[in-house]
Design a protein around this nucleic acid. Structure first.
Lengths: 220, 220
DNA sequence: ACCTGAACACCGTTCAAGT
DNA sequence: ACCTGAACACCGTTCAAGT
């Protein structure tokens, strides 16, 4: 029943994730993670070399949860599925976004992920160059969308958009276009910021599909 | 010559930005910012209410540097210019990215920015809905690209891509597609990750241009 | 081998005291 | 009014000591 002798790197990382989920990345400290495991902070040092290493493991913990596409799946479905999976993971653990900047050296898991995505595209008629364009464009969009969403002053869905808009109520004399677009969007009553994800993603995938059809032309 | 009596909110925020640029966001502390100004940490509390408020001001300090588009400029040029400006700012101050997540309430500067971008699009034939799609897609891409770039284990440009690729040298038996795409891309000798920015941006803008032409159809 | 207590140099912040 | 010193409850980390 006690934690004695049962400490492990895996349990420590899980505990750190639990703390981050509950109270944010800033409150992940060697002491708070220790407390989560009913152990002194110093005990952790027998399993992780320092806090930096723990944070690296925590980043990996989150990104490993993103579904890998299967090589052989239709490329477009595969990209949609991966993007949605990434968004789901990053929505559940938004603190992981702050770890993308400034975390070093790609590990085997990241390389494997990279390889699968490229493979998925290159076995379906994408050149190496276009597959790389596709990868960086989709990834940038997905991470950026998750980042924007995490910073939103409301939780999207359930009509929170309308509630927030009427709360801020940007004065039309100062912000004419913003006011007009809010009015128009919310008039229908079914605006959901969430939908912008599929929207942007489909826009990007449409563009990629077109460039894929014209491989060999100046697009390469 | 002394700092006595010359402390101000502006000087404090500037000092915090200098510390962040030099040694990272993590090392921005009330004490380190005080030291930058040759003042005790406690003196700062007469100008900013606490560290959280200082960080809010620091986020604003960075984002205000992003060029606002002029209403009346051709929409596509305006979007490109704004995107490049954002990327330049975020490359110079990558710590600002970590502040996008978890920073609350949009201030007047952000609302103004929002209004201008929407105005730029809506005066050029974009519906409110399509302008909103455009805004969120471009922004997600730009932020996400900057985030990816900041996390890169090398500084893009100057052939660093090739140097890094040969350093990592993913074994082709483990990562066949990654190895093949790296080989193909670097064969030409002119691959630059940097170019993916314009590439992805143009792909998105092409998609938006097409949807703009078909306003009134099911796209809306 | 694994866990801990005390210690050190750091944090943010309060408050009473200086000018 | 503005700045500061001492103090408090926190950090990460080291190291010697316990089991």
């Amino acid at each position: 029943m006690t934690a004695r002798g049962m400490l492990s790197r895996q349990r420590i990382v899980d505990a750190a994730a639990a703390v981050a989920d509950r109270t944010g990345l800033a409150s992940v400290s060697m002491r708070s993670v220790g407390a989560e495991l009913r152990v002194e902070a110093m005990s952790l040092y027998h399993h992780v070399s320092n806090k930096e290493a723990l944070l690296d493991a925590l980043a990996e913990w989150a990104f490993v949860q993103i579904d890998l596409p299967e090589i052989g799946d239709p490329w477009r479905d595969a990209m949609v599925q991966r993007a949605e999976s990434a968004r789901t993971v990053l929505r559940a653990h938004p603190w992981a976004l702050g770890m993308l900047e400034s975390r070093p050296v790609p590990g085997p898991a990241l390389l494997r992920h990279h390889d699968r995505v490229l493979g998925c595209l290159m076995t379906e008629g994408f050149s190496a160059a276009l597959a790389t364009h596709a990868f960086s464009t989709i990834d940038a969009f997905v991470y950026g969308f998750a980042l924007t969403e995490a910073g939103l002053p409301f939780t999207p869905g359930e009509g929170a958009e309308a509630a927030f808009a009427s709360q801020v109520a940007p004065p039309p004399e100062d912000y004419p276009y913003l006011a007009r677009s809010l009015a128009e969007l919310l008039h229908g009553g079914d605006y959901a910021f969430e939908d912008e994800f599929r929207n942007g993603l489909e826009l990007i995938l449409d563009g990629l599909a077109q460039r894929r059809m014209s491989i060999g032309t100046p697009w390469q």
